[in-house]
């Protein structure tokens, strides 16, 4: 008797098959990605041709300024999705991020109006944002609650606290920092646009240029593999939620500067933030969320709203188009994956 169990030897044909399959998969992914990007490009081209003033420098800078708040929030969301894995039901998500921004804005504006200086007020806003993030981290990492549910509950807490603080009113605010953010400009680019540029650069370098970012992707992509490589998965996941809270606080300062006040209703941004982070994956070769991809989709969403405005199309379409785009991208992606015959 020579062997008790068959040693599995892959034949030539199988290796070729596997190679062909993987080539086919890569091709399919490429088609999906290029298709999605082409769709984005077509929409942009349409605006360039038909929307008056779309390409003017003034208009484009305006779009970048408008996108700053969404962008900063979307980076936080992207980090959470990277670290938690992109399985939406089980994986990382922070539904509380927009409500958290509203709460931070309320704290910031209220403290300013009570006469505390910029420094204290900014610090308080950042502390509140990171505390909410830490609460999410505790719920998700410490207690093992599904991120979807944990952050949904925290959303309510944060939104309720904002309302309690402001009594659902507009809290006006002004300060030297806000003055700079509103009217400051360097090299012809406004401070708000600079904020987005600098924040984007930092996020892209940290997530895509450091070993920290590399490990973060490993934690989200295959937690067991990360653990086997000696990486502390709980630390990285917790970090993303706290970072997300920090992003909410930064965005809150930008939003207060843009409106010269904290206003209710910031929670409505959540859908756009989710859309930006999810749409961003099509810009990535690996179909993972990336900071660069998120930036592109944030700008795309900004240009979409702007183009509609210039074409006199009702802004009520924007949400629906975003929803349809998410469904389209996800359906095509799942179709491309499904055609591998994994099922």
């Amino acid at each position: 008797m020579s062997a008790t169990v068959l040693h599995t030897e892959v034949g030539v044909s199988d290796e070729k098959q596997a190679a062909a399959k993987s080539a086919g998969r890569r091709f399919g992914a490429l088609v999906v990605r290029l298709g999605a990007i082409a769709a984005f490009a077509a929409i942009m081209a349409y605006f360039v041709i038909f929307a008056p003033g779309f390409t003017s420098t003034f208009n484009l800078i305006n779009v970048v300024e408008q996108s700053a708040i969404l962008g900063v929030l979307a980076y936080g969301m992207t980090a959470v999705i990277i670290g938690g894995g992109s399985d939406v039901t089980e994986g990382g998500i922070d539904l509380s991020i927009a409500a958290n921004m509203g709460l931070c804005a309320a704290v910031y504006a209220t403290l300013l109006s009570m006469g505390y200086g910029d420094f204290l007020s900014v610090m308080a806003a950042i502390a509140v944002g990171m505390a909410v993030g830490a609460l999410n981290a505790l719920a998700v990492v410490g207690l093992g609650i599904l991120p979807l549910l944990a952050t949904l509950a925290v959303l309510n807490v944060a939104a309720g606290m904002e309302l309690t603080l402001t009594q659902n009113t507009v809290v006006g605010a002004s300060s030297p920092l806000l003055g700079v953010l509103v009217s400051g400009s360097f090299f012809g680019i406004s401070a708000l646009a600079w904020a987005l540029i600098v924040f984007s650069a930092v996020m892209i370098v940290v997530v895509h240029g450091t070993s920290f970012g590399l490990r973060l992707y490993a934690v989200g992509g295959h937690p067991e593999a990360a653990r086997a490589a000696g990486i502390s998965v709980p630390f990285y996941v917790s970090f993303t939620y706290v970072l997300s809270g920090f992003c909410a606080a930064v965005a809150s300062i930008l939003t207060v500067s843009r409106l010269s006040a904290s206003t209710p209703g910031s929670g409505e941004l959540l859908l756009s933030v989710l859309a930006a982070a999810l749409l961003g994956t099509v810009f990535s070769r690996r179909f993972v969320p990336t900071m660069g991809g998120t930036l592109l989709s944030v700008l795309f969403i900004g240009l979409l709203a702007n183009g509609f405005q210039l074409l006199n199309v009702s802004s009520y379409w924007v949400n629906g188009v975003q929803g349809a785009l998410i469904l389209l991208v996800v359906a095509i992606t799942s179709f491309a994956r499904g055609s591998e015959g994994s099922r």
Binding site: T210, Y217, A225, A226, A228, V288
Partner: peptide, 27 residues
Amino acid sequence: QDRLLVPTATVGEAVFLGHEIGLGPFV
């Protein structure tokens, strides 16, 4: 036996995960 590799990593990233090559925090 189970392949403990991050599916979306490149070969280089997978080989050096946890022991990255680079300068300081940068890879």
